[in-house]
Computed example of a mutant assay.
Amino acid sequence: MVTVNIGMLHYVLDHVYGAFVHRTKLSPPFFSRGWGGTKLDLLEKMIKQLFPEQNWPPTLVQPVWKTVWESQTATLREGFFKTPCDHQLLTALPPESHIARVAFLTPKYTPSHKTACVVHLAGTGDHTFERRLRLGGPLLKENIATMVLESPFYGKRRPLLQRGSKLLCVSDLLLLGRATIEEARCLLHWLDCEAGFGKMGICGLSMGGVHAAMVGSLHPTPIATLPFLSPHSAVVAFCEGILKHATAWEALRDDLSMHEASMTLDEVKERMRNVLSLTDVTRFPIPKDPSAVIFVAATDDGYIPRHSVLELEKAWPGSEVRWVRGGHVSSFLLHNGSFRRAIVDSLNRLKWKESPL
């Protein structure tokens, strides 16, 4: 009788998928054009500007909306607005990324002050609204609206020379994150001050979960914060997990060698660790209500090692980690119910905002 280790099968599936997507020549590797030069220098200097609370409130964006469809119970709108990033970041972003796009799925007749809304951020390779709308759609019956942000460098915001989700430079990864955080914070401010929602939350899967954790950390009031299948830092994804096989290490070494002495690949990887340490969520402030933070992690994740999730839980006492059986890919496909349950439970741990007179 042959005993099948289901956990190992999930782990192997991650590696098979990763080999097909990242080790074939179907698309170039990540960072094939190097580090990003002066853009990377700028981002390394600016990263600490995320922390001071005087950065709140952010710019109040005013999305321009159009109705895509409406039913007896729900309305789907799409909107756009100019990214609120400051001049330095706007100059660093590709022109295609200057206009942010959002989809907004709301229950039709429930007043906003009796409705919660969760902003869903994109994981690596999630270029459209559809997957996140499918995740949020069933939550309408719980009076939970869904707002989906299209990331810079993705979808209609993708630079002309970029193929798929394979960012051209390391600086693009930090730019994507910084702009996503700015835009998500502005959308939460709009949901609170303009739309008047009674509760709010932020969630994301994988890379989107890292960004969601950062946004939840920086928000001045308690919000539901839901990182799904997420590491504590991009270091884990690109230097330890499967994406290390999708990184153009030789191109990064050649780029560095143009400005410094010849370097070994190990030295290049150490440089990458130093740069991506800027994305370490454990260095961010503890959210205002850690009990409303629920991490959902996979038991056999080939992209995100277990220790990374435990570092998040340790850094934010009072938060909760929930484990689903599977790998990164299989959990992404099979555990939407667990993600939705976490969203509902996290929002239930928050108080309703006082209703308008």
Rank of each mutant, 00 (worst) to 15 (best):
residue 129 F to E: 00
residue 144 I to P: 00
residue 159 P to E: 06
residue 315 A to S: 15
residue 88 Q to M: 10
residue 177 G to M: 15
residue 27 S to T: 11
residue 354 E to S: 14
residue 279 T to F: 08
residue 308 S to D: 05
residue 350 L to N: 01
residue 232 H to P: 05
residue 67 T to V: 15
residue 106 T to M: 09
residue 312 L to N: 07
residue 134 R to P: 01
residue 69 W to E: 13
residue 303 Y to D: 03
residue 45 K to L: 10
residue 90 L to T: 14
residue 247 T to L: 13
residue 201 G to E: 01
residue 58 P to Q: 10
residue 227 P to H: 02
residue 12 V to G: 03
residue 150 E to F: 06
residue 260 E to T: 14
residue 336 N to V: 02
residue 313 E to Q: 15
residue 254 D to E: 15
residue 243 L to I: 03
residue 34 G to S: 08
residue 346 S to E: 04
residue 70 E to C: 08
residue 118 V to C: 08
residue 128 T to G: 12
residue 63 P to R: 08
residue 336 N to Y: 06
residue 270 E to F: 06
residue 205 L to G: 07
residue 89 L to E: 03
residue 210 V to I: 15
residue 305 P to F: 07
residue 49 Q to D: 15
residue 216 G to I: 02
residue 144 I to W: 00
residue 205 L to K: 11
residue 68 V to C: 09
residue 277 S to M: 09
residue 123 G to M: 05
residue 89 L to C: 02
residue 49 Q to S: 14
residue 123 G to R: 03
residue 154 Y to P: 04
residue 274 N to Y: 12
residue 183 E to G: 05
residue 105 L to N: 01
residue 63 P to I: 07
residue 141 K to L: 11
residue 140 L to T: 03
residue 324 V to T: 02
residue 30 F to Q: 05
residue 285 P to L: 05
residue 68 V to M: 13
residue 19 A to H: 11
residue 109 Y to C: 05
residue 229 L to Q: 08
residue 149 L to C: 12
residue 172 D to Q: 00
residue 90 L to P: 01
residue 271 R to H: 13
residue 99 I to C: 11
residue 173 L to G: 00
residue 205 L to A: 09
residue 191 L to G: 10
residue 34 G to A: 01
residue 315 A to M: 08
residue 177 G to I: 09
residue 228 F to V: 14
residue 234 A to Y: 14
residue 182 E to P: 00
residue 343 I to A: 02
residue 240 E to S: 02
residue 303 Y to A: 06
residue 313 E to A: 14
residue 155 G to L: 09
residue 245 H to T: 10
residue 97 S to E: 03
residue 120 H to R: 10
residue 73 T to L: 09
residue 188 L to E: 09
residue 319 S to C: 06
residue 323 W to R: 07
residue 347 L to V: 01
residue 42 L to S: 12
residue 4 V to Y: 07
residue 238 F to G: 08
residue 188 L to W: 10
residue 283 R to G: 15
residue 58 P to T: 10
residue 178 R to Y: 15
residue 115 T to Y: 04
residue 213 A to Y: 13
residue 83 T to V: 03
residue 67 T to H: 06
residue 186 C to T: 14
residue 73 T to C: 07
residue 334 L to C: 13
residue 235 V to I: 11
residue 303 Y to C: 07
residue 319 S to D: 03
residue 255 D to R: 07
residue 258 M to A: 15
residue 300 D to K: 02
residue 267 E to G: 04
residue 109 Y to T: 15
residue 78 E to W: 09
residue 220 P to M: 06
residue 71 S to F: 03
residue 294 I to M: 10
residue 53 E to H: 00
residue 268 V to K: 00
residue 221 T to H: 07
residue 184 A to P: 04
residue 166 K to A: 12
residue 154 Y to L: 15
residue 149 L to V: 13
residue 203 C to P: 01
residue 184 A to M: 04
residue 26 L to G: 15
residue 83 T to G: 04
residue 185 R to L: 13
residue 328 H to I: 06
residue 68 V to H: 07
residue 278 L to N: 12
residue 2 V to S: 11
residue 88 Q to L: 12
residue 229 L to D: 04
residue 206 S to Q: 07
residue 343 I to N: 00
residue 225 T to W: 10
residue 146 T to Y: 12
residue 248 A to H: 14
residue 121 L to W: 10
residue 322 R to H: 00
residue 106 T to W: 09
residue 241 G to F: 05
residue 19 A to W: 14
residue 34 G to K: 09
residue 40 L to P: 02
residue 136 G to E: 05
residue 277 S to N: 15
residue 105 L to P: 04
residue 344 V to Y: 00
residue 107 P to Y: 11
residue 35 W to P: 00
residue 243 L to W: 10
residue 329 V to F: 13
residue 342 A to H: 09
residue 123 G to E: 07
